[in-house]
Each structure stands twice: as structure tokens, then as C-alpha cells.
């Protein structure tokens, strides 16, 4: 089974702040780490590889510094990594990112399964998985909380909606995005950390992939961010409920919904 895991590098949790003067994100000095949900996707891929054999290929789009995250994935025991990196790809929104990743997956070729984390912890969009699936014309399971290999080319995944849980069967090739409930990602072991530096990290640019310049980077991104700011800090505003217990509860339940 040839599995591609899409990963994203994100700033270390809770370290991102807004400069109160300029209203810009303060990014300097923040260590990039692999998006936590993507670790669940890598773990799922490694377990499927243990079951079915094959290869786990990490795929990311971003600046050269994203090799840090790819290396982390390799140290979890993935086989190789691909980074799509070029100035022309900068400023991509989810649509342009999804297009670029889909093209890279086509270039990798003969991919049976694409796994991604349910969303990134920085942008919180969760859109890239379904966009990649749409571009590749593949079936999708989003927010999977279990994945089981039913046969060489069928997977049954569970997806929890608000009130129900679905069993979804897909025929590979397919795209699956995973929740953290799916598994507990393994640690990078000391030996694997050392060996990860012997594994291949291939870097592709937009020309290597023959990307349409109109569909990548800023040009290929329909959305624009017009402003970035810190949310208003709300302390808890205490509402005092009526003294009659029933009235209190009725008012409470009303306001809670």
C-alpha cells in the first residue's frame, strides 16, 4: 500500500501573539512543529503499512524550514518525504494548497491512500483534505476515529457526527482525514531520530509539477485576509439567577442555548 500523509508545520501551541501596536502576528523566534493531528495521520499510515506492507510518504507544502516537520515524521518511521517549495506558492489559501498537494500526489503516482490530520491547529480550517479529494476525484472520509483495512482495496472508517456515528466504506484510492481519537502517535525513538537523516527528502517546485500559475500561491487563492487582531478578552460576566430554583433553572437553560 502506497500511503501519502499530508503534513503541515505549525507554530508551537500557545506561543503566537499579536503585536498590540502593529496588529501583526509575532512570528519571530517561534519554533515550528508538526501539526499535532498530522501525527495521528502518520501513525495511522504506519499501522496500515505494518498490516499491508508498502510505503509511507510524507508530503508538505511550504518553505524550506518545513523540513523540520518532515524530519519529525521520518523519525516516527515514515519512509521518505516530499516538500513542494517555492516562492511562487507563498500566500496560498486552502484552495491553492489543495490544488498543489493534489498535483504532487499525482506526481508521486499510484497512491492508494492519502491521509491528513482533521485540521491544522493554526489555521483551523480542515478544508485541505476534502479539496484534495475533490481535485483527485477520490472518495473521502473526514474526521475518522477508526480505520480498518477490510481487504486489499477497501477500508471501513468510523466518523462521529454530532449525534450519530457512521460506518463508511471506501474503495481505494481514497482520502481520509483523522481525529486525534484515532490513535496515540508513537514517539520518535532516539535511533529513528538518527536514521531519519539518512532518508530522502525530495524538494519539488511549481515547474517540477507543471503547476498552473493561475491556481497557485496568491493568484490561485480566492480568499484574502483583510485584518488580523487579538480577540476581545472577556472575563466572566456573572449573571445572577433568580432565587426561585425553578425560575433560575429555566433562565439558565434558556441562556445556555
Amino acid at each position: 500500500m502506497k500511503i501519502v500523509v499530508g503534513i503541515k508545520q505549525v507554530p508551537q501551541a500557545d506561543s503566537v501573539k499579536i503585536d498590540p501596536q502593529t496588529n501583526n502576528l509575532i512570528r519571530s523566534g517561534i519554533q515550528g512543529v508538526i501539526n499535532p493531528f498530522d501525527k495521528n495521520a502518520i501513525e495511522a499510515a504506519l499501522r496500515l503499512r505494518a498490516q499491508a506492507g508498502g510505503e509511507v510518504i510524507l508530503l508538505s507544502m511550504g518553505p524550506d524550514s518545513y523540513v523540520t516537520s518532515l524530519r519529525d515524521g521520518l523519525a516516527m518511521d515514515a519512509d521518505q518525504a516530499v516538500l513542494v517549495s517555492s516562492r511562487a506558492l507563498g500566500g496560498a489559501d486552502t484552495l491553492a494548497t489543495g490544488y498543489t498537494l493534489a498535483k504532487a500526489i499525482e506526481a508521486i503516482g499510484d497512491v492508494d491512500l492519502v491521509l491528513l490530520g482533521r485540521q491544522s491547529v493554526d489555521a483551523d480550517t480542515g478544508q485541505v483534505g476534502p479539496i484534495v479529494a475533490a481535485y483527485l476525484g477520490l472518495p473521502q472520509v473526514t474526521f475518522a476515529e477508526s480505520i480498518s483495512l477490510e481487504s486489499a482495496n477497501t477500508i471501513i472508517a468510523k466518523r462521529q457526527l454530532d449525534t450519530v456515528i457512521q460506518d463508511i466504506k471506501v474503495t481505494t484510492p481514497a482520502v481520509i482525514t483523522v481525529r486525534s481519537e484515532l490513535n496515540r502517535p508513537r514517539y520518535e525513538t532516539p535511533v529513528n531520530i538518527k536514521q531519519s537523516f539518512d532518508k530522502a527528502v525530495t524538494v519539488w517546485s511549481e515547474t517540477d509539477l507543471n503547476l498552473d500559475p493561475e491556481q497557485i500561491g496568491q493568484a490561485g487563492s480566492p480568499t484574502k485576509v483583510t485584518s488580523v487582531y487579538a480577540p476581545e478578552k472577556k472575563g466572566r460576566q456573572t449573571t445572577t439567577l433568580p432565587t426561585d430554583p425553578t425560575q433560575a433553572v429555566v433562565e439558565l437553560l434558556n441562556k445556555l442555548n
Partner: peptide, 18 residues
């Protein structure tokens, strides 16, 4: 299981060789 005994063990003995 997570290989912590191998941190300093040289790689020719299956260690990480840190």
C-alpha cells in the same frame, strides 16, 4: 520500547550513538 536505553549506545551495536 521507546529506545531510551539506546541513547548513547554506539550505532554499531544498534544504538543511536548520541
Amino acid at each position: 520500547d521507546n529506545g531510551l536505553l539506546k541513547i548513547t549506545l554506539p550505532s554499531q551495536y544498534g544504538g543511536a550513538g548520541f
